[in-house]
């Protein structure tokens, strides 16, 4: 009974969240954090950041952070329910809209829709960066890692995996 409740809660929250995730899964990180840490108390700040980090280093779409949260909250069923809820509604929308989208290529409302949504997606992504950085950067070394990674990624074409690997090694070595 209790388990059923938590699954419905997961499904409801993530389905709602997915409908507002303008700019993709990473744009919804602040809301996931607010939900999982502040509102529901499913996990600590640190656990959330850990899951975000794990999702970033796992191959595949970034949305799998939702799978981890679901697993943490309600085990295997939680992982599946959360992932389905996050992907299902917008996949249905993509399926129905995909065919007709081409037809409205020149329509003014379509241009306005896209032009209006892009900046909001970017603002949400910026909020993600802010929320994750604030949760992860407990000390100066961590803040320096964030800053260095941001600069190197922005100014060079270095594969981000190297940066993530270097950071993980610094952590293992006890520098953070």
């Amino acid at each position: 009974m209790n388990n059923d409740n938590i699954l419905w809660t997961l499904a409801g929250h993530f389905a709602l969240l997915s409908l507002f995730a303008i700019g993709g899964a990473n744009a919804a990180i602040p809301e996931m954090h607010r939900l999982a840490v502040d509102v529901m108390g499913w996990m600590t700040d640190r656990q959330f950041t850990d899951m975000f980090a794990i999702a970033q280093v796992t191959p595949g779409p970034n949305v799998i952070v939702v799978t981890l949260i679901g697993y943490h909250v309600a085990g295997l069923p939680g992982a599946l329910v959360a992932t389905l809820a996050m992907c299902g509604p917008t996949c249905l929308a993509a399926y129905w809209i995909g065919g007709t989208w081409e037809r409205f290529k020149q329509a003014r409302w379509r241009t306005a829709l896209q032009a209006g949504m892009v900046p909001i997606g970017i603002g949400l992504m910026a909020a993600s960066a802010f929320v994750v950085a604030r949760a992860a950067d407990h000390n100066l070394v961590a803040a320096a890692i964030t800053l260095a990674t941001a600069c190197i990624t922005f100014w060079t074409k270095l594969n981000p995996l190297w940066l993530l690997g270097a950071a993980a090694l610094m952590g293992l070595a006890g520098l953070v």
């Binding site: 850990d50 975000f52 980090a53 941001a150 090694l169 293992l172």
Partner: peptide, 20 residues
């Protein structure tokens, strides 16, 4: 735990660069 914390810090940096 420390490795994950450092990873999280780096991942935050990746998003900052993407946003910019």
């Amino acid at each position: 735990a420390r490795a994950l914390t450092a990873l999280g810090a780096a991942a935050a940096g990746l998003i900052i660069a993407t946003v910019i």
